[in-house]
Design a binder for these strands. Structure first.
Lengths: 157, 157
DNA sequence: TGATCTCCGATCAATAAGGTCGGACTAAGG
DNA sequence: CCTTAGTCCGACCTTATTGATCGGAGATCA
């Protein structure tokens, strides 16, 4: 449970790879194409392409068309958060269905719902965690930020 | 994304309700049946029954059969964590597919996977959060368990 | 201009979630 | 002791979401 989709997985791998190629030591500024990434990580080519399209549409990467084309990060790796990546692929993150209710739509349990408030607290904690972690943090070596266990402020004792 | 299933939602609502009935002020020790919960929160009766069966099988609640039967918490509300509830319904929680790989099975990307380690860190953080939050913490508003009043604290133990 | 590569839309298949049915068991009440 | 009402329990079906695929159009460089 609480699994993130395969597409999101692929997005993270691809972005990590693009970032490594772009800012790495060997060939900085390199442009990588879909095929290279798909072969490197055994990802279905067409599916990965679709994922990269979405990332491009959401301005996380830039696409260069034609031969010698490929993808490049749209901005620095430490300016791209994990939350932004996941939301680009899977839409706004929400623990429950009632997390982002528009006016007029609400779940059947809304009236007497007894768990809405505490669950929103949990959701905020997770969102905070993902917003504070960037693509840069996923590049090996750099220590990761850790969430404090008292994350459920107001709910937990 | 990162949504928990409706069944897990129902489980949380039901447990909160059972706990409230059991330790509440009005009728402490009350046994509640499936029908009561289903009507209170507009949950499909048969589906809720299935959820409660699972919880019972995982020793979070106890079932009493026959007329005047129903469900009771298997232990105190502050001894039941949110993680335990969710895992009972949806199995072991894991952000990615490779979170709980047994020997012999592994994802195609395993060899060159560049995001496995950081994702496991994220998963640990979420798991820690859910393990530190109990059913008791979800009883919002009026405190339902008033075992340790401020007066008793000074005298006894 | 030709060849190559990427982008884009529509489409199909697999999996998991959501929901439903009938039977088995238990305990109360006559 | 036997009936009967009420409850739990397991297997089944339906629908929605995700994962994966195909074919073509547009753009760039040699």
């Amino acid at each position: 449970m609480l699994k993130i989709s395969k597409k999101a997985d692929y997005a993270l791998m691809a972005l990590q790879h693009i970032a490594a190629a772009q800012f790495g030591d060997v060939m900085p500024g390199r442009v990588v194409n879909t095929k290279e990434i798909a072969e490197e990580y055994n990802i279905p080519l067409e599916l990965l392409a679709k994922v990269l399209q979405t990332l491009s549409k959401n301005a996380l990467i830039e696409s260069h068309n034609g031969p010698k084309g490929g993808y490049v990060l749209a901005r620095r790796a430490d300016k791209i958060t994990i939350a932004q990546i996941l939301e680009s692929i899977e839409g706004p993150l929400g623990i429950t269905d009632c997390s982002h209710e528009k006016d007029g739509e609400f779940c059947m349990q809304r009236d007497n719902c007894n768990i809405r408030t505490p669950l929103l607290k949990v959701q905020d904690s997770i969102a905070q965690l993902l917003n504070n972690m960037t693509l840069q943090d996923m590049m090996g070596g750099t220590p990761l930020i850790t969430i404090q266990s008292s994350a459920a402020q107001g709910v937990a004792r």
